[in-house]
Amino acid sequence: AGWTLGLMYSNGISGDTNRWSHDRHYWGAGLKYQAGAIKSSLILEAENKVTYATVNGVQVKEAPITAKYTVNYGLEYNTGSWTPMFTYRYVTQDEGVKAHKFGLSALIPYAGGRFKVAAAYMFGKDESIKAGEDKINHWQVGAAYEYPLSKRTVIKPFIGYAGSGKGWKNLGYANDGNIYNAWQAYIGMHHFF
């Protein structure tokens, strides 16, 4: 009746040298609904981060690290002429990042191809920032045009910008520019074998 359920589990994602009970584990569950012009999905994911060290030949539990959790929701509606989409994500990550992210995008047919446009905004907290403001935000915008050169080959130019503010405004790697604020442009070709 349009519903699909998926479950996934991994009993070791950081190597296979530890016993399964001493390794990092991943759990995931996804629920998808599709009926006519509507597609929707909800995905829940978790990863435990308990680690063990070997001291004098004995495995000892190290200080526990907060588990990572992710909730993803997506919705799209094909109007017949174009397809608007909405996404929401809540995530907790390593080093104490907790954030909400909202996105809007669309597929728009035009001149034998189709435009893909998207914008997203994220806000939250980054507890790894020791000095200064730990509140963060991040935004992205982008547009691409996919044009079929044949039934199996598509060419796609793209341009996009990502920027950050608050605690991430000036964060980056030394000698590598600011990784949180950048333009990107490319032309790619995709061939289906």
Results as ranks from 00 to 15, higher is better:
H100M: 03
Q34E: 06
A46S: 12
G142L: 02
G142E: 03
E45D: 08
I65S: 04
R24Y: 10
K169Q: 15
K39W: 15
G103W: 00
K116H: 12
N178G: 04
N178C: 02
Y186V: 10
W82Y: 15
K130C: 08
A162W: 06
A35K: 10
I38A: 09
K39I: 14
G172H: 00
V154F: 05
R89T: 04
A1V: 13
G57C: 01
V71F: 15
S14Q: 12
G12Q: 01
Y26P: 11
V60T: 09
G188S: 12
F192V: 13
E146N: 07
N78D: 11
T92P: 00
F193G: 03
V60M: 09
N78A: 08
E146A: 03
L149V: 04
Y77G: 01
L107W: 06
V117W: 10
I65M: 15
N48I: 03
M8S: 08
G163S: 05
T79W: 12
V141W: 10
R24A: 11
T153F: 03
F193M: 12
N48D: 08
P148C: 05
N78S: 04
E76D: 11
T54C: 13
Y77C: 03
A185I: 14
G112V: 06
Y9H: 13
V91D: 11
F86C: 09
A143F: 04
S81C: 14
Q140T: 11
K101E: 07
W82P: 00
I129H: 01
S164A: 09
A37C: 09
W139L: 00
K169S: 08
F192C: 09
R89L: 03
A1D: 06
K101T: 10
R24N: 09
N18Y: 02
N137F: 06
I159K: 00
W139K: 01
G163I: 00
L171G: 02
G172T: 00
Y186P: 01
T79A: 07
